[in-house]
Design a protein around this nucleic acid. Structure first.
Lengths: 333, 333
DNA sequence: ACATTCAATACAACCGGTTTCATTGCAAGC
DNA sequence: GCTTGCAATGAAACCGGTTGTATTGAATGT
């Protein structure tokens, strides 16, 4: 591959002039500029990003840490991040962390070793658990989706508590009183927030919350199927299931079918996230729309701001959600 | 951030010694090594990847071009690539190309400008359409999933033709004779291959192939729903639908439900890919298992080989598929 | 005791751009 | 005509590591 010196020689100028021809053409006379560009074209010269980035001490790269890239919700967030990244000429290194703290730590280190300029994390693990060197150097960091809004870095997500309350209220308004909850993993902030939302909705109607109606499990279809099996075989007269994700709901639908329930007549099921498959379930899933792509976009916009030197510290954006009413939740007597 | 010179000064050695302490500790005496490591630790020194990579003229980074990162099948392939990448200390830059040739070209250019060492492409667009500079410089390139096996680069995928034949034969063995085909986009190699497989299966039983029973459309749920609507309202006595992807099949199930079909009694539907959601469909989807993660792994293994200098040119791996029999296809008459 | 050998380390060039500072030359102003 | 100012360009330092070569010094052999 041709180098800047080759071009300089062919155009009979100095390397500095060639460099300027690309970075700030207005500094060159028209004739020189033409000569340089012609020489570059002839040699098919392309500046080495590696050399440029080394000089600048920037990578123009943002690391995205995803707990599971094969999860559609996360994939949509990444898609949004990607869109804004392209617009701003950033590259994305994507790392599937499997939600492992050690792997996330290595990711954060990539900023210190100049492999990435910043990190966008999908998940709730706070930065200080990943980076023990204190104030040694500030890591440009943004958390998206199930963020922990107590950190000093920007977070982008939804108001899980009120979104869950909205859905719970919808179930209550449909007349459901015996509502089972297929929750996600118990130790997750999201899970606790959504649970709090359900409590809020019940409290608003002065109804009691029954802890025994909650089954915890992974945020996955298999997890939902499993939890539903447990809950439905234990609690006979449940009329609705509040599932904390669409995947859990899809698993629950399978379990309910297998247990002989006629959906949605015998049992209402609600989801959370509004992934595309929900629309194609039988019955189509009533759920909460979470603007996944937009969350990704906003997260990346914040990252761009930070990397441009605009200090965005305590911003915790909560994007708006929407109730998506489909057929899986029915009114009851 | 501390630099190598700082460490050298503190340990009272030359920068070269510090460098060797990390790259080849055996070259140092025990006492010096200890002193250097202690100094590095004290200053929290981490070598700048940017400087190292610039020196090496390598990026340790592979670009993965994905037509749509939010597609679960592609996401699983990326997941497999990622796994092998981590093992081999490679980073992954993921680019969502939207199946756009111009964006893919820019991606390939990243190798020329030293932003990536090689490119793994998920899709079938041949390299020579993306890189017109001929033999100017060889781009380490591997194609995965719906690869075009006529190129001079390695490809990893499945034998779409015989996999489709296997599924078609299954439908025939179940007694289906009026089989509608919900095909993908007509101009895709995959589509044509799978169509050829269907023809093979019919020919093996000396049955005719009816072109009017094919509906083309995008490889998506909406596409499948649309195609199914068109085909089912036109062709009344179809007993089975061969769908070229699980997403198409899921759309078709929705359409069939909406048209009042009782599944699977009135109509059998088969998918292709074996995405996780298929198992949770109503009825659960009979499909062809495509080893997506493994395809990603093998693709990345080839990429590692190439980048280590092992010239792997004409390898076209076809990983084995499996028929996944579930409830959406029924025996008839 | 002196030559030989080898391990341990230092020195300095190098990777390929960018950028500062210096220099040149031409045009405008007095 | 000489100074001043500015546009155009070149020379060289620099980014922070790695590595080939030179140097030192201690151990070994005769």
């Amino acid at each position: 591959m041709a180098q800047i010196r080759d071009v300089a020689k062919l155009a009979a100028v100095s390397p500095a002039t060639v460099s300027r021809a690309f970075s700030d053409p207005s500094k060159l006379s028209t004739t020189t500029l033409e000569r340089v560009l012609a020489a570059a074209e002839e040699l098919k010269y392309k500046p080495s990003s590696l050399a440029q980035l080394f000089r600048e001490k920037r990578t123009n790269t943002v690391l995205v840490m995803v707990p599971d890239i094969a999860n559609v919700l996360f994939a949509r967030v990444v898609s949004g991040i990607e869109r804004v990244a392209v617009e701003n000429k950033f590259n994305l290194i994507v790392s599937d962390t499997g939600d492992d703290a050690a792997i996330e730590s290595v990711g954060v280190e990539m900023v210190e070793t100049y492999r990435a300029d910043g990190v966008i994390q999908l998940g709730e693990r706070p930065l200080d658990q990943l980076h023990h060197e204190g104030e040694h150097c500030a890591i440009p960091f943004v958390q998206a989706i199930s963020a922990d809004p107590r950190g000093r870095y920007p977070t982008v997500g939804i108001d899980d508590r009120s979104a869950a309350a909205m859905m719970a209220e919808h179930l209550l308004a449909c007349g459901h009183r015996r509502i089972g909850v297929l929750a996600g993993l118990k130790d997750r902030l999201v899970t606790q927030e959504r649970l709090a939302g359900i409590r809020d909705a019940l409290a608003a109607r002065e109804l009691p919350f029954d802890e025994t109606m909650v089954a915890y499990g992974p945020y996955s279809m298999a997890g939902g199927e499993n939890s539903a099996m447990r809950l439905l075989s234990r609690e006979r007269n449940v009329s609705a299931l509040f599932c904390m994700s669409d995947e859990i709901a899809i698993g629950a639908i399978r379990a309910a079918h297998d247990l002989g329930f006629n959906l949605p007549n015998d049992l209402s099921i609600s989801g959370f996230d509004n992934i595309e498959f929900g629309k194609y379930c039988t019955p189509p899933l009533t759920t909460v729309m979470q603007p996944a792509e937009r969350i990704g976009e906003v997260a990346m916009i914040h990252m761009c701001d930070i990397l441009r030197g605009h200090a965005v510290t305590g911003i915790h954006e909560m994007l708006s959600t929407e109730l998506v009413v489909r057929a899986s939740v029915r009114e009851v007597g």
